[in-house]
Simulated assay, not measured.
Amino acid sequence: MSVSELLWDRPSAAVLGTLILAHGAGAPMDSAFMQGIAARLAARGIAVVRFEFDYMAARRVDGRKRPPNPQAQLLARWSQVYAAVRAEVARPLAIGGKSMGGRMASLLADELGADALVCLGYPFHAAGKADKPRVAHLADLRTPTLIVQGERDALGNRTTVEGYRLSLAIDLHWLATADHDLKPLKSSGLTHEQHLDSAADAVAAFLTR
């Protein structure tokens, strides 16, 4: 793939690490969430590389909404992007993403030999299907992993997730009263911006420790 297809956010000072960040199922690589996280991480010394899966890139061309590509195609795209970035940057190189993008990264992290994995709003199960968790591979994950999760995420709230058997390589960072987009309840007195700052702090500390 062409490196020109990638969207970079680079720190103005020294680069402490690089994170390839994939978008979720319904929003592109330049959504407000992705822009906000990328800018915050760059301000904390982490270079962020964003890309789009094929279905989202096609939507950008003709404006037509499409469902995500089959999993095999999503994983192939991830592997292609990782190889391109790996050829361009020095270690440490982490992978991850928002929701679906993070889940696809988690399926490949060990195989690719990524230095770390970062998931923002991990979809532990589909909406309304807590009885069908997507966690089997997370029990044996070897890659150092940080999952930033809202306590009331409809795809994996704190009570549900604490009942799963997860690898010791996984750290969970919980955000009070936050949903799948890391937005807190207004009654909490917290703001979305504060939670994005907290997420960026946690990710930067994790990637530089």
Rank of each mutant, 00 (worst) to 15 (best):
Ala32Val: 14
Gly26Phe: 10
Asn69Trp: 07
Thr143Cys: 11
Ser106Asp: 08
Gly150Ile: 00
Ala169Asp: 08
Ala178Phe: 03
Ala13Lys: 09
Leu21Pro: 02
Gln80Phe: 07
Gly102Arg: 05
Ala58Arg: 15
Asp131Ser: 15
Ala130Met: 12
Ala27Cys: 11
Met104Cys: 14
Ser198Gln: 14
Gln35Arg: 11
Ile20Val: 15
Arg10Pro: 14
Gly63Thr: 08
Val49Tyr: 01
Ala136Trp: 08
Phe51His: 05
Ala25Val: 12
Pro68Glu: 06
Leu16Ile: 03
Ala204Glu: 03
Leu196Trp: 04
Arg134Ser: 14
Leu117Asp: 06
Arg77Trp: 09
Arg64Ser: 11
Gly36Pro: 00
Thr160Val: 10
Asp181Thr: 06
Met29His: 10
Leu117Thr: 05
His195Arg: 04
Ala109Pro: 02
Thr208Glu: 07
Arg165Val: 14
Gly17Arg: 02
Asp30Ser: 03
Ser106Glu: 06
Met104Ser: 14
Glu193Gly: 05
Ser4Trp: 12
Met29Ile: 07
Ala87Met: 05
Asp153Pro: 01
Gly156Met: 03
Leu6Gln: 11
Arg152Gly: 05
Gly45Ser: 11
Ala176Asp: 08
Asp131Ala: 15
Gly128Gln: 09
Arg64Val: 10
Cys119His: 05
His137Pro: 05
Ala94Cys: 03
Arg209Asp: 14
Leu107Asp: 07
Arg44Trp: 00
Asp9Gln: 12
Ala94Gln: 01
Asp30Ile: 01
Met29Pro: 05
Arg44Ile: 01
Glu193His: 07
His23Gly: 01
Leu41Arg: 00
Ala39Pro: 03
Leu74Thr: 05
Leu41Gly: 00
Ser188Ile: 03
Arg142Ser: 12
Asp140Asn: 13
Tyr122Ala: 07
Arg91Gly: 03
Glu52Leu: 12
Ser188Thr: 05
Val118Leu: 01
Asp153Ala: 01
Ala76Glu: 15
Ile95Met: 04
Ala76Val: 12
Lys65Ser: 15
Ser4Gln: 14
Thr18Ala: 02
Pro68Met: 06
Val3Asn: 13
Gly156Ser: 06
Asp30Gln: 11
Thr191Asp: 03
Ala105Phe: 08
Leu74His: 06
Ala130Glu: 13
Glu193Asp: 13
Thr145Val: 10
Ala126Gly: 09
Thr143Met: 02
Arg103Asp: 02
Ala116His: 01
Ala27Ile: 13
Ala105Gln: 07
Ala25Thr: 09
His195Tyr: 14
Asp62Trp: 07
